[in-house]
């Protein structure tokens, strides 16, 4: 069975580019809804499903070092 994982997002560092989302194989992450932005006006990354395996690839793709990854 796949390991369980989770991410923590530094919301103020996220620019909502979504490169992380292209690397997620389990559809665990998405951007916040329009209107739901950080103080710079960017939509930001959120966990939307409990399927995260802690593979770290989203953080590897992040140009802004906004993601920390945890794993069991």
């Amino acid at each position: 069975m796949a390991k369980k994982g989770k991410i923590e997002v530094r919301i103020e560092h996220c620019k909502g580019c979504g490169l992380c989302i292209t690397s997620c194989k389990v559809d665990a992450i998405a951007l916040s809804n329009a209107g739901e932005t950080n103080s710079y006006g960017y939509q930001y990354l959120k966990m939307v499903k409990d399927t995260c395996t802690g593979c770290t690839l989203c953080a590897v793709m992040c140009p802004d070092q906004a993601i920390d990854v945890y794993r069991e």
Binding site: K4, H13, K15, G54, Q65, A66, D68, R71
Partner: peptide, 16 residues
């Protein structure tokens, strides 16, 4: 859970 990937602190604590 254990932290397995964290920001590299050679970068200052700010967005790029």
């Amino acid at each position: 859970m254990k932290k397995v990937y964290e920001r590299n602190n050679i970068a200052l604590d700010m967005p790029s």
